[in-house]
Design a protein around this nucleic acid. Sequence first.
DNA 1: ATTTTTTAGTGAACAGTGTTTACTTTTTGA
DNA 2: TCAAAAAGTAAACACTGTTCACTAAAAAAT
Lengths: 217, 217
Amino acid sequence: MTVSVSSPAQRRRNKVRARILSAAERVFAREGASGLSIRRLAETIDYSPAAIYKYFSSKDELVDELKETFFELILENVNRIVDTSTPFAERARDCVATYVRIATDKPHHYAAAFAGESTSQAPVDGEPGFDQSKKGQAFMVLSGMIAEGVEKGVFRPEIDPSTAAKSIWASMHGLAMMIGHIPTFQACKPSQDTMSREAFIEYHADQVIRGLEAHHG
Amino acid sequence: MTVSVSSPAQRRRNKVRARILSAAERVFAREGASGLSIRRLAETIDYSPAAIYKYFSSKDELVDELKETFFELILENVNRIVDTSTPFAERARDCVATYVRIATDKPHHYAAAFAGESTSQAPVDGEPGFDQSKKGQAFMVLSGMIAEGVEKGVFRPEIDPSTAAKSIWASMHGLAMMIGHIPTFQACKPSQDTMSREAFIEYHADQVIRGLEAHHG
DNA sequence: ATTTTTTAGTGAACAGTGTTTACTTTTTGA
DNA sequence: TCAAAAAGTAAACACTGTTCACTAAAAAAT
């Protein structure tokens, strides 16, 4: 058993692993999971296809790592907004909008992060570590923010943070998927002038948050 | 050239075509596009794999037909609600909720209908018959309904129906995808009691419509 | 320093996939 | 009845993910 947590061998191994992931990342960003083949990947890093399997037990596992890393990126960016001292309503809007911005920057990553969950792992009954997953953390951040809004009286008092979080998560998820994967969506039959992507993301975020707001007076 | 629009040969051909589609439909509903293989399909209808290609030029074309038929189903159901004389607000909610209900009944169909559009056909620049597609029709139904809401004064007057339609379409799309493809979504960290799927769909629909409503008083 | 053991990496194969081509059989239309 | 068109097929091509037996190299233990 190695005493040092990072022996030269370990570090060399991690380096190769990182090279594989980096190469995978590049092609995945452009063509998605279907365009990423083990053989092609092996060729670009000058290894044999079988070599990949010394580092990843399957293509799914490799892609899973890309997805997890990507969702980390989302979570970091969202958290950076959450920890801001801007007025609550604005902060909430910016938070969900940022989620969509990052998601649409890497549409394939985002779609993959939500695809194939019903096939890869059994739904069991409880949550198999949902809270630990980056997705679970994102959900908690969101529901926490909603709870804050309810406390502050900005949102209606009868709102259950968890339920509302699921609802607006779904709304933002939908927008991210639409923008990222339906080319016709951005310009689908607007009155005349097409809204910019950024403007529409903000419009949608505003719309969604508005659904929670209390109406005083 | 055949005089009758439907010669015995034609009808026999259509029958086989329908058999292929029917068999494809069954397996697709359970396992999605990835589980549907030409060879497996050929086996279940006792044909050779190559025979399929006398009826469909590619697997994509076959699946496209399944998707189109499915979206027809959605459109029919939604239209049935639209043509109802129930009060507007309730009708609007029921309309978008129905969309999600049908979508989540056949999650693979729904996901497929929104997948791979960026790969299969070029985005060109304008809309390549978006208005003619079932999806385009669904969009028009929705924006028409919103226009009605604005006219009736139920929705805020500054709302642009097309823009709002895209927004709430995205919201409902997101919910449909979440319910259909994330097993953990239904039960993700609620206070204690899990809301039923139907109840949550209605909650979300209500939330989304609420974002458009004018607040008198 | 030598030997043993573990790891890195490979070529060839297996079982799949969508698709095409050349070919045979059947059916249709005149 | 007979040419033409369509239906159907076996075999192959070019892919895919994955595994297995194997060699070369590095690490560990003596």
